[in-house]
């Protein structure tokens, strides 16, 4: 494994992460370590707890047990707003705000009192293959376009880790490939570490180099893509 030789220091570490709602355990004792620049897929059947894990990492929900460390710091000690910008999340549904594409992409920086200049807006838009879309009304976008605006909106915050929760599952085949291409080019162009949730094997093979396999709220495998997926298909 060449990855071991160049192993960089751990950037994100989950330690005994657990979550439950009304006594029902949705995640228990999740442990993993991720280095900067890695491309991780969280893979597993529907209801395995994949979204739950991503939401915990963005701290949209509060872990009931355990914690995570970002660059060595307990993530609960980082103010939520700062943490959420560092671990940028793209949800399954675009959930765009009413208004124009540009307004959506400027949202994150604006809440920080920063102004996203036109050049960066343009760069972000062309990064998601939406050059010229700045003034379009988001209500009139196709599903694939909306999801790419969603991605650009998160990227505008310059996250260190990108959390993608099934970013293509609500799209048809053609749009899915478009968004996938966009994600790949974003990953290739930057330093961003990526955690992608997917239950599509082919997509995991195309986008990730390591897989965390979840089932019934437990982490049941962690390793290189082929290894984990092959072992998975054998049983």
């Amino acid at each position: 494994m060449e990855r071991d030789e160049i192993k960089s220091p751990v950037f994100l570490r989950a330690e005994g992460l657990g979550y439950q709602v009304d006594g029902q355990v949705l995640l228990s004792d999740i442990n993993f370590e991720i280095s900067a620049g890695e491309r991780i897929a969280i893979f597993g059947p529907s209801g395995a707890g994949k979204s739950t894990l991503i939401r915990l990492l963005n701290r949209l929900d509060e872990p009931v047990s355990g914690t995570a460390y970002l660059d060595g710091q307990d993530y609960r000690e980082i103010p939520s707003r700062v943490l959420r910008r560092r671990l940028g999340m793209v949800m399954q549904q675009p959930n765009l705000f009413p208004g124009s594409v540009a307004e959506n992409i400027r949202f994150g920086p604006t809440t920080q009192g920063e102004n996203l200049d036109d050049a960066r807006l343009k760069a972000l838009l062309s990064g998601v293959d939406l050059a010229g879309f700045a003034d379009r009304d988001v209500a009139k976008l196709s599903g694939g376009e909306a999801q790419r605006v969603n991605l650009a909106r998160t990227l505008a915050n310059k996250p260190e880790v990108l959390l993608l929760d099934e970013p293509t599952s609500s799209l048809d085949q053609a749009a899915r490939r478009d968004v996938e291409e966009t994600i790949l080019s974003v990953l290739d162009s930057g330093e961003v570490t990526c955690i992608l949730v997917s239950h599509d094997r082919a997509q995991v093979l195309r986008l990730a180099d390591r897989v965390l396999m979840l089932e019934g709220g437990k982490l049941i495998a962690d390793g290189p893509v082929e290894e984990v997926l092959d072992a998975q298909s054998m049983d």
């Binding site: 959930n95 994150g108 920080q112 998160t154």
Partner: peptide
């Protein structure tokens, strides 16, 4: 809830 959480996930203050 989806839009509210999308806003939070982008680091926006809850009141906003």
């Amino acid at each position: 809830a989806g839009q509210v959480e999308a806003g939070l996930a982008l680091g926006a203050p809850p009141e906003q």
